[in-house]
Nucleic acid binder design. Structure first.
Lengths: 163, 163
DNA sequence: GGTAATGTGGATATGATATATCCACATTAT
DNA sequence: ATAATGTGGATATATCATATCCACATTACC
Protein backbone atom coordinates (compact mmCIF):
# COMPACT_ATOMS: atom_id res chain seq x y z
CA UNK A 1 0.00 0.00 0.00
CA UNK A 2 1.45 3.28 -1.06
CA UNK A 3 0.31 6.88 -1.02
CA UNK A 4 1.15 8.92 -4.11
CA UNK A 5 4.00 11.42 -4.18
CA UNK A 6 1.49 14.16 -4.77
CA UNK A 7 0.34 13.94 -1.18
CA UNK A 8 3.79 14.84 0.09
CA UNK A 9 4.03 17.69 -2.40
CA UNK A 10 0.59 18.99 -1.50
CA UNK A 11 1.26 18.94 2.22
CA UNK A 12 4.61 20.73 1.93
CA UNK A 13 3.34 23.34 -0.52
CA UNK A 14 0.23 24.11 1.52
CA UNK A 15 2.50 24.46 4.52
CA UNK A 16 4.60 26.95 2.56
CA UNK A 17 1.54 28.92 1.49
CA UNK A 18 0.44 29.02 5.12
CA UNK A 19 3.42 31.31 5.80
CA UNK A 20 2.33 33.76 3.10
CA UNK A 21 0.12 36.77 3.75
CA UNK A 22 -3.59 36.25 3.04
CA UNK A 23 -4.66 37.07 -0.53
CA UNK A 24 -1.09 36.93 -1.79
CA UNK A 25 -0.43 34.31 -4.45
CA UNK A 26 2.56 32.23 -5.54
CA UNK A 27 2.75 31.00 -9.12
CA UNK A 28 3.20 27.33 -10.00
CA UNK A 29 6.68 27.82 -11.44
CA UNK A 30 7.96 29.28 -8.18
CA UNK A 31 6.31 26.54 -6.15
CA UNK A 32 7.95 23.88 -8.31
CA UNK A 33 11.36 25.49 -7.87
CA UNK A 34 10.95 25.76 -4.12
CA UNK A 35 11.02 21.97 -3.68
CA UNK A 36 12.62 21.04 -7.02
CA UNK A 37 9.49 19.37 -8.32
CA UNK A 38 8.55 18.66 -11.96
CA UNK A 39 6.40 21.62 -12.99
CA UNK A 40 4.02 19.94 -15.47
CA UNK A 41 2.97 17.23 -13.06
CA UNK A 42 2.89 19.58 -10.10
CA UNK A 43 0.26 21.58 -11.99
CA UNK A 44 -2.01 18.53 -11.81
CA UNK A 45 -1.63 18.37 -8.06
CA UNK A 46 -2.32 22.07 -7.69
CA UNK A 47 -5.41 21.73 -9.86
CA UNK A 48 -6.66 18.86 -7.70
CA UNK A 49 -6.17 20.93 -4.56
CA UNK A 50 -8.04 23.82 -6.20
CA UNK A 51 -10.95 21.62 -7.30
CA UNK A 52 -11.21 20.28 -3.75
CA UNK A 53 -11.43 23.80 -2.35
CA UNK A 54 -8.14 23.68 -0.45
CA UNK A 55 -6.44 26.24 -2.69
CA UNK A 56 -7.70 29.17 -4.73
CA UNK A 57 -6.25 29.94 -8.13
CA UNK A 58 -5.91 33.34 -9.76
CA UNK A 59 -5.36 33.57 -13.51
CA UNK A 60 -3.43 36.25 -15.28
CA UNK A 61 0.06 37.73 -15.19
CA UNK A 62 0.12 38.23 -11.42
CA UNK A 63 -1.84 35.06 -10.77
CA UNK A 64 -0.94 31.99 -8.79
CA UNK A 65 -2.18 29.99 -5.82
CA UNK A 66 -3.12 30.74 -2.23
CA UNK A 67 -4.92 28.95 0.60
CA UNK A 68 -8.68 29.01 0.16
CA UNK A 69 -9.18 29.58 3.90
CA UNK A 70 -7.14 30.16 7.03
CA UNK A 71 -4.46 27.63 7.95
CA UNK A 72 -6.31 26.46 11.04
CA UNK A 73 -9.27 25.52 8.84
CA UNK A 74 -7.28 23.23 6.52
CA UNK A 75 -6.56 19.75 7.84
CA UNK A 76 -4.16 17.09 6.64
CA UNK A 77 -7.19 15.03 5.66
CA UNK A 78 -8.43 17.83 3.38
CA UNK A 79 -5.15 17.77 1.48
CA UNK A 80 -4.85 14.01 1.45
CA UNK A 81 -8.36 13.53 0.11
CA UNK A 82 -7.91 16.26 -2.48
CA UNK A 83 -4.92 14.46 -4.00
CA UNK A 84 -5.77 10.80 -3.39
CA UNK A 85 -9.52 10.94 -3.61
CA UNK A 86 -11.78 9.66 -0.87
CA UNK A 87 -12.06 6.01 -1.86
CA UNK A 88 -11.22 3.49 0.81
CA UNK A 89 -7.81 1.86 0.45
CA UNK A 90 -9.38 -1.53 1.11
CA UNK A 91 -11.81 -2.63 -1.61
CA UNK A 92 -14.31 -5.33 -0.72
CA UNK A 93 -15.09 -7.45 -3.78
CA UNK A 94 -17.58 -9.63 -1.89
CA UNK A 95 -15.63 -12.84 -2.38
CA UNK A 96 -17.74 -14.26 0.46
CA UNK A 97 -20.57 -14.54 -2.09
CA UNK A 98 -18.48 -16.60 -4.49
CA UNK A 99 -17.58 -20.27 -4.54
CA UNK A 100 -19.37 -23.45 -3.46
CA UNK A 101 -20.82 -21.95 -0.28
CA UNK A 102 -21.88 -18.68 -1.86
CA UNK A 103 -25.51 -17.75 -1.36
CA UNK A 104 -27.87 -15.48 -3.26
CA UNK A 105 -27.10 -11.82 -2.89
CA UNK A 106 -30.20 -11.12 -0.83
CA UNK A 107 -28.81 -13.40 1.87
CA UNK A 108 -26.20 -10.75 2.70
CA UNK A 109 -28.13 -7.86 4.25
CA UNK A 110 -25.20 -6.75 6.42
CA UNK A 111 -21.81 -5.53 5.23
CA UNK A 112 -18.96 -8.01 5.22
CA UNK A 113 -17.63 -8.11 8.78
CA UNK A 114 -14.08 -8.25 7.49
CA UNK A 115 -14.46 -5.18 5.30
CA UNK A 116 -16.24 -3.33 8.10
CA UNK A 117 -13.33 -3.98 10.43
CA UNK A 118 -10.70 -2.74 7.98
CA UNK A 119 -12.80 0.30 7.10
CA UNK A 120 -13.15 1.16 10.78
CA UNK A 121 -9.35 1.19 10.99
CA UNK A 122 -9.21 3.50 7.99
CA UNK A 123 -11.66 5.78 9.76
CA UNK A 124 -9.34 5.94 12.75
CA UNK A 125 -6.60 6.98 10.37
CA UNK A 126 -8.81 9.69 8.83
CA UNK A 127 -9.86 10.94 12.24
CA UNK A 128 -6.24 11.45 13.14
CA UNK A 129 -5.48 13.33 9.94
CA UNK A 130 -8.60 15.46 10.36
CA UNK A 131 -7.38 16.45 13.81
CA UNK A 132 -4.24 18.18 12.56
CA UNK A 133 -4.38 21.50 10.70
CA UNK A 134 -1.70 23.39 8.82
CA UNK A 135 -1.67 25.89 11.68
CA UNK A 136 -0.86 23.16 14.20
CA UNK A 137 2.39 22.50 12.33
CA UNK A 138 3.39 26.08 11.53
CA UNK A 139 2.73 26.97 15.15
CA UNK A 140 5.02 24.18 16.28
CA UNK A 141 7.75 25.11 13.81
CA UNK A 142 7.99 28.76 14.83
CA UNK A 143 8.49 27.60 18.40
CA UNK A 144 11.73 25.86 17.41
CA UNK A 145 15.05 27.60 17.94
CA UNK A 146 16.16 29.82 15.02
CA UNK A 147 17.67 29.86 12.51
CA UNK A 148 14.89 27.61 11.31
CA UNK A 149 13.93 26.79 7.79
CA UNK A 150 10.57 28.50 8.18
CA UNK A 151 12.35 31.84 8.39
CA UNK A 152 14.10 31.14 5.13
CA UNK A 153 10.73 30.22 3.71
CA UNK A 154 9.22 33.53 4.79
CA UNK A 155 12.14 35.45 3.27
CA UNK A 156 11.78 33.47 0.05
CA UNK A 157 8.06 34.20 -0.01
CA UNK A 158 8.64 37.97 0.04
CA UNK A 159 10.38 37.59 -3.33
CA UNK A 160 7.84 35.30 -4.95
CA UNK A 161 4.44 36.48 -3.81
CA UNK A 162 2.22 38.80 -5.78
CA UNK A 163 -0.48 41.02 -4.43
CA UNK B 1 -4.03 4.83 -2.18
CA UNK B 2 -5.04 1.24 -2.59
CA UNK B 3 -4.49 -1.97 -0.68
CA UNK B 4 -3.73 -5.06 -2.77
CA UNK B 5 -6.35 -7.71 -3.47
CA UNK B 6 -4.21 -10.21 -1.61
CA UNK B 7 -5.16 -8.61 1.69
CA UNK B 8 -8.83 -9.39 1.16
CA UNK B 9 -7.98 -12.93 0.11
CA UNK B 10 -5.70 -13.44 3.09
CA UNK B 11 -8.26 -12.16 5.56
CA UNK B 12 -11.08 -14.30 4.21
CA UNK B 13 -8.98 -17.44 3.92
CA UNK B 14 -7.53 -17.11 7.41
CA UNK B 15 -11.10 -16.64 8.61
CA UNK B 16 -12.04 -19.88 6.88
CA UNK B 17 -9.10 -21.74 8.40
CA UNK B 18 -10.14 -20.43 11.80
CA UNK B 19 -13.22 -22.65 11.53
CA UNK B 20 -11.12 -25.77 10.90
CA UNK B 21 -9.93 -28.07 13.65
CA UNK B 22 -6.37 -27.44 14.89
CA UNK B 23 -3.64 -29.36 13.03
CA UNK B 24 -5.93 -30.07 10.09
CA UNK B 25 -4.81 -28.62 6.79
CA UNK B 26 -6.51 -27.41 3.62
CA UNK B 27 -4.62 -27.53 0.33
CA UNK B 28 -4.16 -24.48 -1.88
CA UNK B 29 -6.36 -25.82 -4.67
CA UNK B 30 -9.34 -26.19 -2.35
CA UNK B 31 -8.75 -22.73 -0.86
CA UNK B 32 -8.71 -21.22 -4.35
CA UNK B 33 -11.97 -22.94 -5.25
CA UNK B 34 -13.66 -21.81 -2.05
CA UNK B 35 -13.57 -18.15 -3.09
CA UNK B 36 -13.02 -18.63 -6.85
CA UNK B 37 -9.53 -17.18 -6.77
CA UNK B 38 -6.72 -17.70 -9.32
CA UNK B 39 -4.68 -20.56 -7.91
CA UNK B 40 -1.18 -19.61 -9.14
CA UNK B 41 -1.32 -16.13 -7.68
CA UNK B 42 -3.07 -17.26 -4.53
CA UNK B 43 -0.06 -19.48 -3.87
CA UNK B 44 2.06 -16.35 -3.59
CA UNK B 45 -0.26 -14.92 -0.98
CA UNK B 46 -0.25 -18.16 0.99
CA UNK B 47 3.53 -18.25 0.84
CA UNK B 48 3.72 -14.69 2.16
CA UNK B 49 1.41 -15.58 5.04
CA UNK B 50 3.55 -18.61 5.79
CA UNK B 51 6.80 -16.64 5.74
CA UNK B 52 5.26 -14.12 8.12
CA UNK B 53 4.34 -16.88 10.56
CA UNK B 54 0.57 -16.47 10.22
CA UNK B 55 0.08 -19.83 8.50
CA UNK B 56 1.94 -23.12 8.64
CA UNK B 57 2.48 -25.17 5.52
CA UNK B 58 2.74 -28.94 5.29
CA UNK B 59 4.27 -30.51 2.19
CA UNK B 60 3.35 -33.87 0.73
CA UNK B 61 0.23 -35.60 -0.55
CA UNK B 62 -1.88 -34.76 2.51
CA UNK B 63 -0.31 -31.37 2.92
CA UNK B 64 -1.83 -27.90 2.89
CA UNK B 65 -2.16 -24.88 5.14
CA UNK B 66 -3.39 -24.22 8.66
CA UNK B 67 -3.22 -21.36 11.16
CA UNK B 68 0.16 -21.15 12.85
CA UNK B 69 -1.48 -20.31 16.19
CA UNK B 70 -4.93 -19.99 17.70
CA UNK B 71 -7.41 -17.61 16.09
CA UNK B 72 -7.39 -15.23 19.05
CA UNK B 73 -3.64 -14.79 18.60
CA UNK B 74 -3.83 -13.70 14.96
CA UNK B 75 -4.79 -10.08 14.35
CA UNK B 76 -5.89 -8.29 11.20
CA UNK B 77 -2.61 -6.38 11.34
CA UNK B 78 -0.65 -9.66 11.24
CA UNK B 79 -2.37 -10.63 8.01
CA UNK B 80 -2.22 -7.18 6.48
CA UNK B 81 1.50 -6.81 7.18
CA UNK B 82 2.22 -10.31 5.90
CA UNK B 83 0.70 -9.51 2.51
CA UNK B 84 1.47 -5.79 2.13
CA UNK B 85 4.74 -5.61 4.02
CA UNK B 86 5.32 -3.23 6.88
CA UNK B 87 6.44 -0.16 4.97
CA UNK B 88 4.56 3.03 5.67
CA UNK B 89 2.07 4.05 2.99
CA UNK B 90 3.40 7.59 3.13
CA UNK B 91 7.01 7.89 1.96
CA UNK B 92 8.93 10.99 3.02
CA UNK B 93 11.46 11.93 0.36
CA UNK B 94 12.78 14.88 2.37
CA UNK B 95 11.79 17.49 -0.17
CA UNK B 96 12.18 20.03 2.64
CA UNK B 97 15.94 19.69 2.10
CA UNK B 98 15.71 20.53 -1.58
CA UNK B 99 15.38 23.82 -3.42
CA UNK B 100 16.67 27.35 -2.73
CA UNK B 101 16.01 27.23 1.02
CA UNK B 102 17.37 23.73 1.53
CA UNK B 103 20.06 23.40 4.18
CA UNK B 104 22.79 20.88 4.78
CA UNK B 105 21.52 17.51 5.92
CA UNK B 106 22.95 17.89 9.42
CA UNK B 107 20.61 20.84 9.95
CA UNK B 108 17.69 18.40 10.14
CA UNK B 109 18.15 16.47 13.37
CA UNK B 110 14.41 15.91 13.84
CA UNK B 111 12.07 14.03 11.56
CA UNK B 112 9.96 16.03 9.16
CA UNK B 113 6.95 17.27 11.13
CA UNK B 114 4.68 16.58 8.18
CA UNK B 115 5.82 12.98 7.78
CA UNK B 116 5.63 12.44 11.54
CA UNK B 117 2.00 13.57 11.54
CA UNK B 118 0.98 11.28 8.70
CA UNK B 119 2.86 8.36 10.20
CA UNK B 120 1.10 8.92 13.53
CA UNK B 121 -2.20 8.56 11.68
CA UNK B 122 -0.96 5.34 10.12
CA UNK B 123 -0.09 4.11 13.59
CA UNK B 124 -3.66 4.78 14.73
CA UNK B 125 -4.79 2.67 11.79
CA UNK B 126 -2.40 -0.15 12.75
CA UNK B 127 -3.47 0.02 16.37
CA UNK B 128 -7.05 -0.54 15.31
CA UNK B 129 -6.17 -3.50 13.10
CA UNK B 130 -4.01 -4.99 15.85
CA UNK B 131 -6.97 -4.83 18.20
CA UNK B 132 -9.11 -7.23 16.18
CA UNK B 133 -8.33 -10.95 16.00
CA UNK B 134 -9.77 -13.67 13.80
CA UNK B 135 -11.57 -14.99 16.86
CA UNK B 136 -13.32 -11.66 17.38
CA UNK B 137 -14.98 -12.05 13.99
CA UNK B 138 -15.75 -15.78 14.10
CA UNK B 139 -17.21 -15.26 17.55
CA UNK B 140 -19.46 -12.51 16.18
CA UNK B 141 -20.50 -14.54 13.15
CA UNK B 142 -21.63 -17.60 15.10
CA UNK B 143 -23.82 -15.27 17.15
CA UNK B 144 -25.82 -14.35 14.05
CA UNK B 145 -29.06 -16.13 13.30
CA UNK B 146 -28.67 -19.36 11.30
CA UNK B 147 -28.62 -20.53 8.61
CA UNK B 148 -25.40 -18.56 8.38
CA UNK B 149 -22.63 -18.94 5.88
CA UNK B 150 -20.20 -20.02 8.56
CA UNK B 151 -22.14 -23.25 8.96
CA UNK B 152 -21.80 -23.93 5.27
CA UNK B 153 -18.11 -23.21 5.63
CA UNK B 154 -17.79 -25.73 8.45
CA UNK B 155 -19.60 -28.36 6.41
CA UNK B 156 -17.38 -27.63 3.43
CA UNK B 157 -14.29 -27.91 5.63
CA UNK B 158 -15.19 -31.45 6.67
CA UNK B 159 -14.80 -32.47 3.05
CA UNK B 160 -11.57 -30.61 2.36
CA UNK B 161 -9.44 -30.96 5.47
CA UNK B 162 -6.77 -33.56 5.96
CA UNK B 163 -5.38 -34.87 9.22
C1' DG C 1 12.60 -47.59 -3.01
C1' DG C 2 9.16 -45.70 -6.36
C1' DT C 3 5.30 -42.76 -7.30
C1' DA C 4 2.22 -39.17 -6.88
C1' DA C 5 0.58 -35.09 -4.59
C1' DT C 6 1.76 -31.22 -2.43
C1' DG C 7 4.33 -26.60 -1.19
C1' DT C 8 8.59 -23.43 -2.53
C1' DG C 9 11.08 -20.16 -4.99
C1' DG C 10 12.58 -18.03 -9.26
C1' DA C 11 11.66 -16.18 -13.65
C1' DT C 12 8.61 -14.06 -16.61
C1' DA C 13 4.43 -12.09 -18.78
C1' DT C 14 0.45 -9.05 -18.46
C1' DG C 15 -2.34 -5.27 -16.94
C1' DA C 16 -3.43 -1.27 -14.24
C1' DT C 17 -2.11 2.89 -12.35
C1' DA C 18 0.93 6.54 -10.93
C1' DT C 19 3.95 9.65 -12.90
C1' DA C 20 5.28 12.87 -16.35
C1' DT C 21 4.74 15.79 -20.44
C1' DC C 22 2.72 18.52 -23.98
C1' DC C 23 -0.70 21.47 -26.27
C1' DA C 24 -4.74 24.43 -27.30
C1' DC C 25 -7.49 27.48 -24.73
C1' DA C 26 -9.46 30.85 -21.15
C1' DT C 27 -8.29 34.56 -18.03
C1' DT C 28 -6.33 38.93 -16.72
C1' DA C 29 -2.61 42.68 -15.56
C1' DT C 30 -0.17 45.92 -18.08
C1' DA D 1 -2.86 44.20 -28.03
C1' DT D 2 0.44 41.58 -25.54
C1' DA D 3 2.30 38.61 -22.34
C1' DA D 4 1.96 35.79 -18.31
C1' DT D 5 -0.64 32.85 -15.99
C1' DG D 6 -4.01 28.77 -14.80
C1' DT D 7 -7.21 24.89 -17.00
C1' DG D 8 -8.38 20.75 -19.11
C1' DG D 9 -7.62 17.12 -22.45
C1' DA D 10 -4.70 13.94 -24.70
C1' DT D 11 -0.78 11.23 -24.55
C1' DA D 12 3.60 9.01 -23.28
C1' DT D 13 6.45 6.61 -19.82
C1' DA D 14 7.58 4.12 -15.63
C1' DT D 15 6.36 1.49 -11.84
C1' DC D 16 4.04 -1.89 -9.50
C1' DA D 17 0.25 -5.24 -8.74
C1' DT D 18 -1.51 -9.13 -10.78
C1' DA D 19 -1.07 -13.47 -12.99
C1' DT D 20 1.28 -17.56 -14.81
C1' DC D 21 4.62 -21.10 -15.45
C1' DC D 22 8.42 -24.22 -14.34
C1' DA D 23 12.09 -26.87 -11.94
C1' DC D 24 12.70 -28.46 -7.43
C1' DA D 25 12.14 -30.13 -2.41
C1' DT D 26 9.16 -32.57 0.71
C1' DT D 27 6.35 -36.36 2.18
C1' DA D 28 2.37 -39.87 2.33
C1' DC D 29 1.40 -44.06 0.43
C1' DC D 30 2.25 -48.34 -2.02
Amino acid sequence: MKASQGVEWGLHLCMLLAFAEPHQTVDATSLAEYHELPLPYLRKILQALTRAGVLESVAGPTGGYRLARSADQITFLDIFSAVEGDQNAFRCTEIRQKGPTGLDQKCYPAACAIAATVWAAEQAWRDHLAGVSLFDITDGLTALAPPGQHELAITWLTKHTRA
